[in-house]
């Protein structure tokens, strides 16, 4: 299967990009850093082109791009920042698309979380619940949506512990400092399942969409375009899904 995937990839990309091996520099939101490393490897195997990856927070990368950072592709953790770059003429108009959709998970290191009732029961029992800062982290804002939608926010308000970002929130729960928290499925997903503890995968109807957009920053590099085409190909989407994203 893996071989088939590689051959297919090679066939698609070798024919369209017979040019010399090039390089593309990609700025990526930290939450997508790990999947991108895997995608970069697959892209390199298929085309021979190298991918130079620079990770940072979406906000910091946005500020850097506005101030002339030499990135060619931007994979953000939200839609707002690529949209803003497009409006400000710092990116190629019309090249923006959603490359991944985040899946929110209510996660604990304990067993037994699976459905909505488990979440409500857990919420009543735990001392603290970790969420990412709702002001600047999309997953934090989505977690607030869920609690408001289910009418449990009042009950939870006093228990909330805010991580500065989704990575810190993950660390609170994984270190068992906090009993449970709202994290991204991609953080706890290994080989197609929740690796440790248990989680309720929150239905996306309960919160705002967690779309992550990609955008092309310069049109002088064909490899950059090829990489964005690759991101939208079926094999790439399969890889993205295997990391706990929807697309």
């Amino acid at each position: 299967m893996k071989l088939f995937k590689q051959v297919l990839l090679a066939a698609v990309f070798m024919t369209s990009h017979l040019a010399m091996a090039g390089e593309v520099s990609v700025a990526v939101a930290s939450n997508f850093y790990k999947p991108l490393l895997q995608l970069a490897e697959e892209f390199e195997q298929a085309t021979g082109h190298k991918v130079a990856v620079s990770a940072g927070s979406t906000g910091a990368l946005y500020a850097q791009i506005k101030n002339g950072a030499p990135f060619e592709v931007f994979l953000a953790a939200d839609q707002a920042r690529p949209e803003a770059l497009e409006k400000e003429d710092k990116a190629i108009a019309g090249s923006r698309f959603t490359y991944a959709q985040g899946q929110l998970a209510y996660w604990s290191m304990q067993k037994g979380l699976e459905a909505e009732e488990d979440f409500k029961k857990s919420l009543a029992e735990v001392e603290h619940v970790a969420i990412a800062n709702p002001k600047n982290a999309p997953y934090g804002a989505a977690a607030m949506d869920v609690m408001n939608e289910l009418g449990v926010y009042q009950q939870a308000a006093e228990k909330l512990v805010e991580g500065n970002n989704i990575g810190q929130t993950y660390q609170y729960v994984s270190s068992k400092t906090v009993e449970a928290g709202f994290v991204a499925l991609s953080q706890i997903y290994v080989d197609g399942r929740v690796a440790e503890g248990s989680a309720w995968l929150v239905p996306s109807s309960l919160h705002r969409v967690l779309n992550q957009d990609a955008i092309l920053l310069t049109d002088t590099n064909d490899v950059a375009r090829a990489f964005l085409d690759f991101l939208q190909s079926a094999p790439a989407k399969e890889t993205i899904r295997s990391f706990g994203y929807k697309i």
């Binding site: 520099s25 700025a27 130079a52 990856v53 620079s54 990770a55 940072g56 910091a60 990368l61 500020a63 850097q64 950072a69 030499p70 990135f71």
Partner: peptide, 13 residues
């Protein structure tokens, strides 16, 4: 360094 350098392999990482 992260802000000014941009985490670029071989150059500012």
């Amino acid at each position: 360094v992260l802000m000014i350098g941009g985490n670029i392999p071989g150059k500012t990482r």
